[in-house]
């Protein structure tokens, strides 16, 4: 009994010691992990916006081509739409077929060689990667809205874009919200590979501490816990948003 107590005490003292070395000494937690968390947030946030904007554009081109092209008169407009559609299809196929970390390195070391800011390149790389997924999600969402809605809008005299904006997209948005939230959460976690292009995010920050203090357990577990907490918080927030949106049309 006595020996168990003393070994527990010994472990606790050791834990405190390691905790101090890992996080407190030299402000390591603040310098590496907290600032890294800031980078994670920045990259996720701006990549999300880029991904949404680009993804919606790609989705609109794909949907417009698939649904409205048959009713268009032959001419340059129809040709342009077919061309854009092909480009979008290739874009989605290529982006979804390559691991994001490889894409990221290609952006950083090959294409955007003149930009030496890993965060900016990360936003571009993750944003474009996310766009391909968002495009497919939004496309599925638009396709899931009953075709009669488009006809009803058009029959009133609204043009294609007005009908999309006021009638189709609000309904599609509600349908895809859960999936978009999943994409957001996936994106947040994917940014953990940004360390490959010389940026210090939360993961890289933890890894730096591991290298400094030769102690892997605490920094990695801390990083894992922080990711987990953020994801849980986001899931909770999105759940609330979803319920509120649904409530508004059951009134």
């Amino acid at each position: 009994m006595n020996s168990l107590w003393s070994s527990l005490q010994l472990w606790w003292a050791g834990f405190q010691d390691k905790f101090y070395v890992c996080f407190i000494e030299d402000d390591r937690f603040v310098r590496y992990m907290l600032s890294g968390l800031g980078v994670t947030f920045q990259v996720t946030f701006f990549a999300l916006i880029l991904g949404l904007a680009l993804g919606v554009v790609v989705a609109m081109i794909r949907v417009t081509h698939d649904t409205a092209s048959a009713n268009m008169r032959p001419g340059p407009g129809r040709f342009l739409l077919a061309l854009l559609n092909t480009i979008c299809k290739i874009f989605v196929t290529v982006i979804r077929g390559i691991p994001v970390v490889v894409q990221l390195m290609i952006w950083y070391f090959v294409i955007l060689i003149s930009i030496r800011n890993g965060i900016v390149v990360g936003i571009i790389g993750f944003g474009i990667n996310s766009a391909a997924y968002v495009a497919e999600i939004v496309r599925a969402g638009i396709m899931s809205v009953d075709h009669g809605q488009m006809e009803a809008g058009r029959s009133l005299g609204l043009n294609y874009i007005q009908t999309m904006r006021y009638i189709i997209l609000p309904q599609a948005f509600k349908n895809i919200l859960p999936t978009i939230c999943n994409e957001f959460i996936a994106l947040l976690k994917e940014t953990a590979v940004i360390g490959y292009i010389a940026s210090t995010d939360l993961t890289k920050g933890a890894y730096i501490i591991v290298g400094r203090v030769y102690e892997a357990f605490l920094p990695l577990i801390a990083a894992a816990l922080i990711y987990l907490l953020i994801v849980m918080l986001l899931s909770w927030l999105f759940g609330k948003l979803e319920r509120r949106l649904r409530a508004s049309d059951q009134r």
């Binding site: 009953d146 009669g148 809605q149 006809e151 009803a152 809008g153 058009r154 029959s155 009133l156 005299g157 609204l158 043009n159 009638i167 609000p170 309904q171 509600k174 508004s248 049309d249 009134r251």
Partner: peptide, 22 residues
């Protein structure tokens, strides 16, 4: 076409009301 359709109302078998508007 849009100008034309403003002059012609249409009522559908499936109603096609907009569910997100009252």
């Amino acid at each position: 076409v849009n100008q034309l359709r403003q002059k012609m109302g249409m009522v559908f078998q499936q109603f096609n009301l907009f569910p997100h508007y009252d």
